[in-house]
Simulated assay, not measured.
Amino acid sequence: MDGEVRYITLVCDDVPYSVVLADPGTRTMDVLKEIRRLTGLSLWHGKLLIGQLPATVLEDQPEDTARTAASALCAVGAVAHAVEQTD
């Protein structure tokens, strides 16, 4: 390796996922509380998010984290999906 430069390409198998809220359902306050628990947003910012549907609640998450978050939102009456991010 006398002065030879080598480059290594890293391959990442973990594709990032987003959690997309499609519909808050009828239990809006419960959905707002869950958004707050998942993201740390205030209830006011959560309400703004719900007003812009479909809304991305979380981005750049591992698949299991995104699916768990989407399930938590669905458990309180929302329609949410874990979506593979494509760039």
Rank of each mutant, 00 (worst) to 15 (best):
G40K: 05
C74N: 15
S18I: 10
T86F: 13
G40L: 12
G46H: 05
A66M: 06
D14F: 06
S71L: 12
V5S: 10
L41D: 06
V15Y: 09
D14H: 03
V15P: 04
L38I: 13
L21K: 07
E59W: 09
G46C: 02
L48K: 15
A55F: 00
L73P: 02
D13R: 04
D13Q: 03
I50F: 01
G51T: 03
W44D: 15
V76F: 00
M1W: 10
A69M: 03
D64R: 09
A22E: 15
D13C: 03
L32K: 01
V79D: 11
M29Y: 03
I35N: 01
Q61K: 12
V5F: 15
A22G: 11
P24C: 10
V5R: 11
L58G: 02
T9A: 13
Y7D: 14
E63Y: 01
T9M: 13
T28K: 13
D87Y: 06
A82V: 11
E34K: 15
A70I: 10
R6L: 06
L38K: 08
A22S: 14
V5G: 05
R27Y: 14
E34G: 06
C74Y: 05
L58Q: 08
L21W: 08
I35A: 05
G51W: 01
P62W: 04
G40I: 07
L58W: 01
E59G: 06
D23T: 10
A80C: 08
T65K: 05
E84S: 06
S18E: 14
K47S: 13
G51I: 01
M29G: 00
R36T: 11
L21Q: 10
L43D: 07
G51R: 03
L38R: 10
T68G: 07
M29T: 09
V76T: 14
V11W: 09
D23A: 09
E84D: 11
A69Y: 08
P16H: 05
P16T: 08
T65S: 02
L32S: 04
R37P: 00
T28I: 14
V5A: 11
V15G: 08
S71K: 14
T65N: 08
Q52L: 00
A80D: 04
V57S: 02
M1H: 15
M1R: 11
V5E: 14
R6V: 15
